[in-house]
Design a binder for these strands. Structure first.
Length: 339
DNA sequence: CACACGTGGTT
DNA sequence: TAACCAAGTGT
């Protein structure tokens, strides 16, 4: 009887699995749900290379979900600074409190999906990897591998339903979590976006896209829109070796993060150009930063011996500005002034 | 369904 | 090297 796709892939995984900090190691205790969950959230739309140092930092500082739930939110936000998509950190805190109050870690897809920040993918991944439940885990790697295996030519995102159906048919009941990780390892190291290494692929003789000659063209995607360029200003307000920092409110861009005051620029439009108070503002330079959906050209204006600004904020010691947890845009601006 | 939401790695 | 994109979620 011919080996199934999952058998072949699991055999490949047993020999070629990547050694990653959030995976159980031989001789170590069973994989902890907390570590699986934390890693999966960090890995949302983020590369393994970028996640590794953050995962080490978080697990050293907050080794359990209870420790994380007890942490001040601003500490978690600052520790997340630089990783992006800050709603993940806001939801991480909320979910850690919810899990602590439950007293046990939710262990089914449905229960996991009720937690903030866990959608279809993460709920399935945690259920499968941490709890050994069969779940159909579909991320961008799986979309790519499945699109090629079954030569699905419909462009994303319209092909999602068909991809999920196909993924379901090849997902085993046993070792569902290993199977999911095997698919992701295959997608990350062999069945890559640009130049798939089909000669090394354990599934190459089952791959319909390879049989027809050009697997790299799949999955097809809708063309993306151009990003607008916005103009904005940020203000470096300094007094007695301290700089005035604000905390951005709400759930929008950079919400919950410390920041320099600005003139209200956003994805929707330019800033007003109006400084927070009168005075002699000196140009400190320009920062260009590209977000997912727009680029901002930020003029940084500096004022020293400043009066007490109106509104919420805090004087932050200049020597500790690296520890303020500024998102990258404002970290670049701070570097302009302090360098 | 379409869009908002960050950043650094990779080619 | 300028694009492209990565273990997606919420609205």
């Amino acid at each position: 009887m011919a080996a199934s796709i999952s058998d072949i892939l699991l055999d490949w995984y047993d020999r070629h699995a990547r050694d990653l900090p959030w995976r159980a190691r031989p001789g170590s205790p069973a994989t902890e749900p907390y570590r699986v969950w934390l890693s999966e959230v960090m890995l949302q739309q983020t590369t393994v290379a970028a996640v590794k140092p953050y995962f080490e930092k978080f697990t050293a500082r907050w080794p359990t979900v209870e420790a994380l739930a007890a942490a001040p939110e601003e500490d978690v936000m600052a520790a997340w600074a630089g990783l992006g998509y800050y709603s993940r950190a806001r939801n991480l805190v909320k979910a850690s409190v919810a899990i602590s109050e439950l007293g046990t870690f939710p262990d089914t897809e449905d229960a996991l999906k009720k937690l903030p920040g866990l959608g279809d993918y993460t709920a399935a991944a945690v259920a499968a990897i941490a709890f050994g439940r069969r779940a159909v885990v579909v991320d961008a790697n799986v979309e790519r591998v499945v699109s090629r295996l079954f030569e699905i030519t419909t462009p994303l995102p319209a092909s999602r339903k068909e991809i999920r159906t196909r993924a379901d048919t090849i997902t085993p009941s046993d070792r569902s979590g290993d199977f999911a990780q095997a698919m992701m390892d295959l997608g990350a190291t062999i069945c890559t976006n640009r130049n798939p290494r089909c000669l090394l692929c354990p599934l190459s003789d089952r791959c319909q896209a390879r049989a027809s000659g050009d697997p790299a063209r799949l999955p097809a995607k809708q063309p993306k829109k151009a990003k607008p360029v916005r103009q904005g200003q940020a203000y470096w307000i300094e007094r007695e070796d301290a700089v005035w920092l604000v905390t951005r409110q709400g759930t929008g861009m950079l919400g919950g993060m410390r920041a320099l005051p600005d003139d209200g620029w956003s994805a929707r439009g330019d800033g007003s150009g109006d400084p927070p108070h009168e005075g002699d503002w000196k140009p400190a330079g320009m920062v260009t930063h590209t977000f997912t959906h727009f680029t901002v050209e930020l003029s940084v204006l500096a004022h020293t011996n400043s009066p007490q600004p109106v509104g919420e904020g805090e004087w932050w010691p200049l020597e500790k500005v690296e520890d303020a947890g500024l998102p990258t845009l404002f970290a670049k601006a701070a570097r302009l002034v302090t360098a």
